[in-house]
């Protein structure tokens, strides 16, 4: 069940240069939302809505949190929103993560792929190990949020200006080596997802990936946000918005 309504912004903060956290009061959408789902957000003056992952769901307060980065003119316009303004939101959309009820979960996020991983940590707390990677120290977001949930956090930066220097796949290898991992979940650049999926295959650990694609309707009608998948041995284009955004990694043809 999804909704299309104007919801008031109750909190807005800039987390890093050009990366914003926005909380809206949206009781019906919050009640229906699950980790890994997204919203398609209307921007005045633009034909297309902007798909933004859901970073936080508070069913009691009735709020949804979004963390997005200014990437172009649309998100720049979106960033002008102030507390008290209304956001035109179509949500919650798509299939989120299916989180195993027991066992250790590894949540891997790269850059602006980190926000959709936070809700996994909210649900799994100490069971969750978060491996989050950023370009450099100035781009780090949400690290304390994961810690606050009781999750172990491995912080990586490309240039080593904070945490471990290098890719998220280094700590991921260590964690997989320890064993007893129920599932790995990941969101980030395509090259990162591909490496994560490959490692999970080697260690025989189930892996779910959240994909991104240029999107139209957001609800499965227009079939523009396709990604190549293999289902029942057959290659086919699936819809990121409706069949995803979260897919089992073994279904995804990353070079498609």
């Amino acid at each position: 069940m999804y909704f299309c309504e104007k919801y008031p912004v109750v909190e807005k903060r800039e987390l890093a240069d050009g990366i914003y956290s926005v909380v809206v009061n949206a009781p019906n959408a919050a009640k229906a939302a699950a980790a890994g789902q997204f919203a398609n957000i209307g921007v005045p003056g633009f034909t297309l809505r902007r798909p933004i992952s859901i970073c936080g769901i508070d069913k009691e307060r009735g709020t949804l949190r979004f963390v997005f980065e200014v990437r172009g003119k649309g998100t720049a316009e979106l960033a002008k929103i102030s507390e008290g303004d209304e956001l035109d939101i179509l949500a919650p959309l798509g299939n989120g993560f299916s989180i195993p009820e027991t066992g250790r979960i590894i949540a891997v996020g790269g850059g602006i792929g980190v926000p959709p991983m936070l809700e996994i940590s909210v649900e799994t707390c100490e069971r969750c190990t978060a491996i989050i990677g950023f370009r450099d120290k100035s781009r780090i977001i949400l690290a304390e949020d994961f810690e606050r949930n009781g999750s172990e956090v491995h912080l990586c930066t490309d240039d080593g200006s904070a945490g471990q220097k290098g890719l998220v796949t280094f700590p991921l290898a260590d964690e997989l080596e320890k064993g007893d991992v129920a599932a790995v979940m990941a969101c980030g650049p395509a090259v990162m997802l591909k490496s994560v999926a490959k490692m999970c295959e080697v260690y025989n650990v189930p892996c779910q990936v959240s994909l991104e694609q240029r999107m139209g309707c957001g609800v499965g009608a227009c079939v523009v946000c396709s990604c190549l998948t293999v289902r029942n041995g057959k290659e086919m284009y699936s819809r990121v918005c409706k069949d995803g955004p979260v897919f089992n990694a073994e279904e995804v043809k990353f070079d498609g």
Binding site: F46, V224, C225, S226, G256
Partner: peptide, 20 residues
């Protein structure tokens, strides 16, 4: 029919291009 490879949509001034 499988359709075309993505990306299949681009925004324009007051519109969109699609190539589903």
């Amino acid at each position: 029919k499988q359709g075309n490879p993505p990306p299949r949509i681009a925004e324009t001034y007051s519109g969109i291009l699609n190539s589903v």
